[in-house]
Amino acid sequence: MSEQRISSGLVLGIAAIIDRLDAYAGSDPASAGSVRDDLLELLALNGVHPVECRGAVDSSLHRVVRVVEQPEAAPGAVVAVWARGYASGETVIRHAQVVVNRPRKGEGDGPWFSQTR
């Protein structure tokens, strides 16, 4: 395994291509999906992984692009991902763009970002 880290500029460029494949709405979704998976695998082989987006929003990983009201979801939970984020080890190269359920505020420790389910 090479110690040399992949440049963040290259990751951002590949991430932009993956974004377009994620948004692909043409007649051949299977091909688009396979190219996207290849690119994700290429990034993973270079130590770059998509940022985890399940559960509560995390300001160190996620950029909140919209807040919605969804009574059935936990307060502060990520309910949709607009664009994947990428990290190499501890270093976030691109924050994930996420939609979150409106958090509850000021109710003691934790409810802000805790996953209550």
Binding site: S59, R63, V64, V67, V100
Partner: peptide, 21 residues
């Protein structure tokens, strides 16, 4: 700066939470 339950968070983490409140 973002005040996360009254505690200040600075930088990209603050920017990331701007839309929340």
């Amino acid at each position: 700066v973002f005040f996360d339950d009254g505690r200040p968070v600075v930088g990209m983490s603050a920017k990331n939470m701007a839309a929340v409140s």
